[in-house]
Design a protein around this nucleic acid. Structure first.
Lengths: 341, 341
DNA sequence: GTTAGCACTCCACCCTTTTGAGTGCTAACA
DNA sequence: TGTTAGCACTCAAAAGGGTGGAGTGCTAAC
C-alpha cells in the first residue's frame, strides 16, 4: 500500500482537526470539512488503510481515529519549513536586556509559557571550553581574603578564604602576579599537578592560600555538573484533559520540578549538533518516562564563547507544532543576535 | 454551653481520626475507638453541641463531622508543647555544610518535602541592616573593570564596568582607596547625595566609573525586593484527595511555582517577631487565596548578621501538625546552631 | 474507484434504584 | 438528670439500565 497524495491530505486533515479539538475524529467530519469532495464512506476506506499503515489509531472500536506517534512524526517532519512570525512580546522581553542572564532566562521561560500555554524549560548556558580570564585576591580584613575568578563568558565566582595570620600588601601583590601569570588563559585541563606544585613552590610559606585559590578556581571553572534549569508554566498541563489526569499531571509536574531528568534531555539535545537546532520528541522518543504522553520541542541557543543552552516546550502530543516551532526559532534567533553584537 | 473536658476529648478524637483518614467521622467511630465508654447516641448529643459551638461541621446532612478551621485552631494551640524528636536525615544534610547557602537551602526544602510528604518552601535570608563591608575595583582588561562589593553577611556582588579608555594602575589604586574610605561601614541610607557628589569631585575625570560603582553598589546592597524562595514537593499535594481536585491542585502548584504570592507570606512571618517562631495558618488565615483549603506552618530561622529567613510547609488542613511543628523546630534550631559557631 | 445504505458496536449520558453511613428525635432507664 | 436503645429519615456514592449518537465495516449498486 502506498501513501499517495490523497491519503496524505486526509491524514493531515485528521491531525489538524484532532489538534484543535482533542477529540477522536470520524470519517464524516473529514468528508464535510475538507475540500476533497469525497463521501464519508470513501474516507472510511482510506482511514482504514491509514490505520493499517500505522499512522492513526482507534482508541476503541467505533470511535473516531486519533494520530499515532508515527502519524505525528510524519506531520511534524513535513511541517518543518516554517514561516517567521513575529512574536512581539518575546522580542520586548529580550530587548530589555536584563543585566543578569539568569533573570533573563527566567523571564523568557515565563513569557514563553504564558504565550504558548504549554510548560517550558530553559537551561542556563553550559560553558564548554572553559578558560580562566582574570583572577584577583584582595584582603577584606586581617583574617579573610577575597578571591575572585572570572572565567570565559564572564562567569564570576567569589570565594572568601580564611587565613590564620595577616598577609601583607606586598605578599598579596606577589600572589596575584603569581596566580595570574601561571593561570590566565589556561583551561581546566591545562592546570595540572606540575603547574600547581610549581606555583606552590614559588609561593613559599603561603602555599595554603594557593591551595585554597586553586580549589575555588576548580569549582568556578568546571562545567557545572548540575546545570541550571528553569521551568515555568507547569500548571498549563491542566489545560489539556488528556494530561490532566491526576497521576499523569503529578508525574509530569514532578519531573519539571525535580529537573534531574531534564538534564538528560538537555544533554541529549546539546550533543546533537546536526540539524537546524529544533528537535521534536513525540511520546516515547524523549528519554523521560513520565512524559510518554507528551511531546517535547527543544531548541538550542548559542550566546557565543561556547555558551550554549536549551529551550524546551512540553505539551500534549496534539500541541500546535506549527506555532511552537516558529516561536522557538524566533526566540533562539533573538538570543543569538542579542549576544552576537 | 461550656467546652468541658469530655467535649474536648471527643473533639480531639474527631480531629485525630480525621487527620488519619481524611473521611468525615461519625458518632459510632468515636464511641468504639476511644476509651470514653459512651454510646454513639451520647456522642451524637455532644457532637451536636460541638457543631453548635462551631468546632466541627457537617459537609452535608447525614454525613460525619469534620473539624472547622476553629476546631483545628483549638487543636493546634493545645498541641504546641512539642517533643524534640530527632530527624536524623535532616541533621545529616545540614551538617554536610554545603559551601553555598543557596544550595543548602534547596536541599533542606527537598529533604523536608520528602520527609513530611507536604509541599515546602524556604526563603533565602533577607539581609536587614545592610552595610558595605569591602569594596574592590580591578582591571580585567583595557576596556573592562571588575567591581566587587561585599556587604554584611558576606553577600558578594560583582559587576563588570565597561570603560572607554584604559585606566592606569595608580588611578585604580586611588579610586579603590577613595571608595573604601568613603563607603565602608556605611548603610544604604547613609550613602546620600552629598557623599556621592563629594566622591565624584575627588574622582575628577573618573566620575563615570564612580557613578557606575555606586550603581552596582546600590543594587548589591538593597534588600533584594524580590527575595529568593525555593520550593519543593509541590506534587505531594496530589497525595491528599481533598486537594487533588484539578482546579485546586493547579492553583496551589501554580502559586508555589510563581512564588510571587509567597513573598507576602514570608514578609508577614518575618515581621512578626513575637512568638516561638512557629506560626500556623489555617485556611483563610493565610494571605494566599489559592491556599484557602490548606494549612501552612511557617518557622523563622536566623543565621546571624541579621540574616533571617522563613521555612514553610504547605499541606491539607488535616496535616500532621504534631510532626510538622517538631520537625520545623528541629530544623530551625539546627540552622541557628550551625551558623552561630 | 466511488458511493449509499444498513447492521453493528461502544461510549457517554441520564435516570433510577440500592446501599450504607450517619443523623435527630423520642421514650425508657438508672 | 444524664445516658442509652431504637427507629425513621436523609443524603451521597455506587450500581444498574436504557437510550442516543457517533462511528465503523461490509456489501451492493453506480
Amino acid at each position: 500500500m502506498t501513501l499517495d497524495d490523497r491519503k496524505l491530505k486526509i491524514l493531515h486533515a485528521i491531525i489538524r482537526n484532532y489538534l484543535e479539538t482533542g477529540e477522536p475524529v470520524g470519517s464524516r467530519t473529514i468528508s464535510k470539512y475538507t475540500d476533497l469532495n469525497l463521501s464519508s464512506a470513501t474516507i472510511r476506506n482510506e482511514m482504514s488503510d491509514l490505520e493499517e499503515m500505522g499512522f492513526i489509531v482507534q482508541p476503541h472500536t467505533s470511535a473516531g481515529r486519533i494520530p499515532s506517534d508515527k502519524g505525528y512524526r510524519l506531520y511534524v517532519d513535513s511541517m518543518m519549513e516554517i514561516k517567521d512570525k513575529e512574536i512581539e512580546e518575546l522580542k520586548e522581553v529580550i530587548l530589555e536586556k536584563e543585566e543578569k542572564v539568569e533573570r533573563m532566562l527566567k523571564s523568557v521561560a515565563k513569557v514563553l509559557a504564558s504565550n504558548t500555554n504549554y510548560a517550558t524549560m530553559i537551561s542556563a548556558p553550559a560553558i564548554q571550553g572553559n578558560r580562566v580570564k582574570f583572577l584577583q585576591l584582595s584582603r577584606m580584613d586581617d583574617n579573610q581574603i577575597l578571591a575572585v575568578v572570572v572565567a570565559d563568558g564572564n562567569v564570576i565566582k567569589n570565594n572568601i578564604i580564611p587565613v590564620s595570620e595577616k598577609i601583607s600588601d606586598e605578599t598579596l601583590l606577589k600572589l596575584n602576579l603569581l596566580l595570574n601569570t601561571n593561570l590566565c588563559g589556561k583551561s581546566i585541563d591545562e592546570i595540572n599537578l606540575s603547574v600547581i606544585t610549581a606555583m606552590k613552590q614559588q609561593a613559599g610559606i603561603h602555599q595554603d592560600v594557593v591551595s585554597d585559590v586553586i580549589d575555588a578556581l576548580a569549582e568556578s571553572i568546571k562545567t557545572e555538573e548540575d546545570l541550571q534549569i528553569y521551568t515555568s508554566g507547569a500548571t498549563n498541563i491542566f489545560k489539556y484533559p488528556e494530561l490532566a489526569d491526576n497521576q499523569k499531571a503529578s508525574d509530569i509536574i514532578h519531573t519539571l520540578e525535580e529537573k534531574q531528568q531534564l538534564t538528560e534531555l538537555v544533554n541529549e539535545t546539546l550533543s546533537d549538533e546536526t540539524n537546524t537546532g529544533i528537535q521534536v520528541y513525540i511520546g516515547d522518543e524523549a528519554p523521560i518516562q513520565s512524559m510518554k504522553d507528551c511531546s517535547i520541542v527543544t531548541a538550542t541557543y548559542d550566546l557565543g564563547d561556547g555558551m550554549r543552552g536549551t529551550i524546551g516546550i512540553v505539551g500534549p502530543k496534539r500541541m500546535d507544532y506549527d506555532k511552537v516551532v516558529s516561536t522557538l526559532k524566533n526566540i533562539t534567533h533573538q538570543l543569538d543576535d542579542m549576544y552576537k553584537k
